[in-house]
């Protein structure tokens, strides 16, 4: 009986969003009378930063500072349609819809500015600071504040735009079954190092080293925040969490936090995160979905590390001490 060490590796290929019956998200953008911009969405921010990212995308597209954009996700009854925040789809689907809406709003904004400046709208550019300038003659300019006032009170224009992003349903080919389940994939690779006590079956994760390829990181600190939390959650899924420990028998399922186990702050593995940015062709400013995929590769990596340590394959999650001991016993017989 001894504490045995093992190391496991796993790599994953993770689709951004889903494709069951088509995957749409809608966005609406409009300016206030004073030249701030409102993004209306039904895509809910669960804490992962949807509002911040959509504000950045809208601001970048229209050409205003991010703090001039307000994102409203308040009401899915009255807001534009979104399939929801899941399947790592929020940034990709809603982001593309916001870009389309913001482009249309920007075009109206430039047309109103063109009338005020008596130039052609195609000769105008934004400075990102709240002003519209004539290309090559920046002394001729107008603030977006004044453009919005003019649109609202003088010219009767609505500086607004509609966005709709749809990944259409992909049907499998009848002969081969081939289909295109997703247009955009994120990738990850994890190496986990564990110690397994072959007397008690207990697993301690010593280190987790993750590389994530997530397209463009639109907000690097928030991406890091997702990945650190996700890496921990992957270990939690690998070793602790289950609602049905003896599935399909539903008895003995956890009913509260005394029985539904999650690692606490004292159970952290040394964690390393490396981000690779390979902008996606159809993502908003090259983004993919890092959310859900970042909690996946740790699970097979830990399972492989357990195999490396004690030579047994546990093929049911979570990898509990009981399952390891049963597998060791079966191996000995």
């Amino acid at each position: 009986m001894a504490i045995r060490r093992g190391r496991g590796v796993a790599a994953i290929n993770y689709p951004t969003g889903m494709n069951l019956g088509g995957d749409p998200t809608q966005a609406l953008v409009h300016s206030t009378p004073t030249g701030n911009f409102m993004v209306t969405l039904s895509s809910v921010d669960l804490g992962q930063g949807m509002k911040q990212i959509m504000a950045q995308i809208c601001a970048e597209t229209i050409g205003v500072p991010t703090d001039c954009v307000v994102v409203d996700t308040a009401d899915t009854d009255t807001g534009p349609h979104c399939m929801g925040t899941f399947a790592s789809r929020g940034t990709h689907r809603a982001g593309n819809a916001v870009i389309q809406a913001a482009k249309e709003a920007r075009q109206v904004m430039l047309e109103v500015a063109a009338e005020e400046l008596e130039v052609n709208a195609s000769d105008l550019e934004t400075d990102g600071q709240g002003n519209i300038l004539v290309k090559g003659a920046p002394q001729k300019s107008i603030s977006i504040f004044d453009v919005a006032l003019s649109a609202h009170f003088k010219r009767g224009r609505s500086i607004s735009g509609r966005g709709m992003f749809l990944i259409p349903r992909s049907y499998p080919e009848k002969e081969t079954g081939a289909m295109k389940p997703s247009t955009c994939y994120a990738h990850a690779c994890t190496v986990a190092e564990v110690e397994v006590d072959d007397e008690t079956g207990e697993v301690t994760v010593l280190t987790v080293k993750n590389v994530f390829e997530i397209g463009r990181a639109l907000n690097p600190k928030m991406v890091e925040q997702q990945l650190v939390g996700g890496s921990w959650m992957g270990i939690s899924h690998a070793l602790y969490e289950t609602t049905e420990p003896y599935y399909p028998n539903r008895d003995h399922g956890g009913t509260d936090f005394n029985q539904y186990l999650m690692p606490g702050p004292g159970d952290l593995a040394e964690t390393e995160i490396i981000v690779l940015e390979r902008p996606s062709a159809d993502g908003p400013y090259g983004a993919k979905g890092p959310g859900e995929m970042c909690a996946n590769p740790q699970i097979p990596a830990v399972a492989n590390a357990v195999f490396d340590a004690v030579g047994v394959r546990v093929d049911t999650l979570p990898i509990t001490p009981e399952r390891i001991l049963r597998a060791l016993k079966a191996q000995a017989n």
Binding site: G47, Q225, V228, G229, G230, S231, W232, M233, F257, M262, G264, P265, G266, L268, T271
Partner: peptide
């Protein structure tokens, strides 16, 4: 810090940023 936070659970962060 870990001891002080050990009675509190968090779903999202993985605790390290809180520590």
């Amino acid at each position: 810090v870990v001891e002080a936070l050990s009675g509190n659970i968090c779903r999202c962060t993985g605790y390290e940023p809180i520590i």
